[in-house]
Design a protein around this nucleic acid. Structure first.
Lengths: 229, 229
DNA sequence: TCCATTAGTGTTAAATTGACGCAAAGATAG
DNA sequence: CTATCTTTGCGTCAATTTAACACTAATGGA
C-alpha cells in the first residue's frame, strides 16, 4: 500500500437517503409522509429522507430520520433501489438511495420536528400527490414488499409480538390486495413453521377466542412459498 | 417554484459504478475482471467500474465502461445494490452502485485499454482474489442471477439468438450449479411459452439434429416458475 | 336457549411435479 | 449397408401439492 492518493475534491452529486415507512393498523397499510416546510415542494407531501453525512452509512442515515420523525430505533430496514434521474431534484444533481421500513404504528408516536409542517400516516390507497420522484419510489417499495412477503416472513414486523391467525391473514390480504382462502392460508403458514402457537388465547369482545401465535425466529430455509392467482 | 437554492458545495462521498459482467461460453459461466495498473490494489484483479460524472446516469456510466472495455453497447443491465462500507476504498469515502450485465462473449472482444494491465474472462469457479469489496459484490450478483433465472427469462442474453434446448438446459445447470432433469426442464420451458421453435435445425457434427429456438419476447406474466430441490 | 359470528379442522378432485422409459434421427465404424 | 452409439424428442405414472369447499367448535348476545 503505497502511493495512494486521496480523492481530489471532484464534484460529486449529493447523496440522500429516502425512506418508505410502512405501517399497518386496523386492516390498513399506511405509509408515513412528511409535509415540507421549505422549497422545493414546499407544502407538498414527500417521503422522509436526509442527506448522507460523510461518515454515515445508509442505515445510520435511516436511523437518524426514523428517530427524529418517529422516535424509533430498531425497525426492519431493507435497501430498495438507487434513483439517479438527473432532474429528480430541482436544486441540482442528487442521487437517492431508497430504503423501506416496516414499523408497528401502535409502538411509535410520529412528530413533525422542526423541518416539516406535519408528519402523517396515509392509507396507501388514498395517497396525496407526492413531490420529487417519490411516487415512483413508493410504487417500487410496495411492489417489493408484495413480492417479498410471498417467500419471506417480512410482515411480522408490522404486527404486535403476539397475533392471531386472522390478523396475519388480514395483513397478507391487505398487502397483496387480494383475497386469500383463510383455510389454505392457515395450512401453508403452519406447514412452513413460520409461526409458533403460544397456547394463550386472545380474550375480549370476540366470539370464539383465537389462539395467539408468535413469529418463529428459527426459520427453515425455503420453507415457504405462497402462490397467488 | 421560488426560492430554490442550489446545493452548497457540501462534501459528498465519491460515487462509483461497479460492474459484474457475466458471460457464458462452452458450459462455463465467466465474469470479466480487470487487472489494475495503479494503486490502490495495483496488479490486483477487480471488477470494472468508473466514477459517476456529474451529468451521467448510472446506465451511462455502465455503457461508458462497457464500450471501453468490451467495445459493446446494448447489453442487459440491472442494478444490483449500493455499497456504503466506509472503508471500502482506501482513498476515502466512496459509494458504489453495483450493476450486473449479461453479455454474449462470442459477440465481444475485450481489450485492456490504457487504465488496466489486462482484462480477462474468469470462470466463476476459479476466481482470483479480488480487490476492494468486490468479492462481496460478485457473490451478491451471482445470487441475484441465480434467483432471477428461476422466474424471469434472463439468460437468453447470454446465448446466441438461436439456440437448442440442450444449450438452454446446460446454461441453467451452469448458472444454478445444479443438475436439472432434461425432460422436466423442457416441459416447463415450453409450457411457459418462454421460447419459440423456429423449425430450423442445427446441422453439423451432432447426432440427431436439434431444433433451434428463439426467445419469445411477448411473455405472458407469471408464466414461469422453476422449482429447485 | 337459540342464534349469529368467528375460529379451527378436514375432505376431495384437479393440477403439478419428479422420476423415469423408450423410440426417432443422425453419425460412425466394421 | 447394417449394427451401434449418441443425442434429441416425447410420453407415462405415482406421489405430492393445490384450490375449493363443508363442517364442527367456541363464544357473546338476544
Amino acid at each position: 500500500m503505497e502511493n495512494i492518493q486521496p480523492f481530489h475534491s471532484y464534484k460529486n452529486p449529493s447523496l440522500a437517503v429516502d425512506l418508505v415507512v410502512f405501517g399497518y393498523k386496523e386492516r390498513t397499510l399506511s405509509v408515513l409522509l412528511l409535509n415540507r416546510k421549505e422549497e422545493p415542494f414546499k407544502d407538498c407531501w414527500t417521503l422522509p429522507g436526509a442527506f448522507l453525512q460523510m461518515e454515515e452509512r445508509f442505515r445510520d442515515t435511516c436511523s437518524r430520520v426514523l428517530s427524529t420523525k418517529l422516535g424509533m430505533n430498531d425497525v426492519y430496514l431493507e435497501q430498495l433501489y438507487s434513483f439517479d434521474e438527473p432532474d429528480r431534484d430541482p436544486r441540482g444533481r442528487a442521487i437517492a438511495v431508497a430504503y423501506y421500513a416496516l414499523v408497528n404504528p401502535s409502538q411509535v408516536a410520529v412528530s413533525a420536528g422542526h423541518m416539516a409542517n406535519d408528519v402523517q400516516w396515509f392509507d396507501i390507497k388514498k395517497l396525496p400527490e407526492l413531490g420529487f420522484d417519490h411516487a415512483i419510489i413508493f410504487e417500487q417499495a410496495l411492489k417489493r414488499l408484495q413480492a417479498k412477503i410471498l417467500y419471506f416472513p417480512v410482515g411480522f414486523e408490522l404486527l404486535d409480538d403476539l397475533f392471531t391467525m386472522t390478523e396475519l391473514h388480514d395483513l397478507y390480504e391487505c398487502i397483496l390486495d387480494l383475497p386469500l382462502d383463510r383455510r389454505n392460508f392457515r395450512r401453508k403458514i403452519l406447514d412452513a413453521e413460520y409461526i409458533i402457537a403460544t397456547g394463550k388465547k386472545r380474550e375480549g369482545l370476540q366470539n370464539r377466542h383465537p389462539e395467539l401465535y408468535k413469529f418463529n425466529k428459527k426459520l427453515k430455509e425455503n420453507s415457504f412459498q405462497l402462490n397467488i392467482s
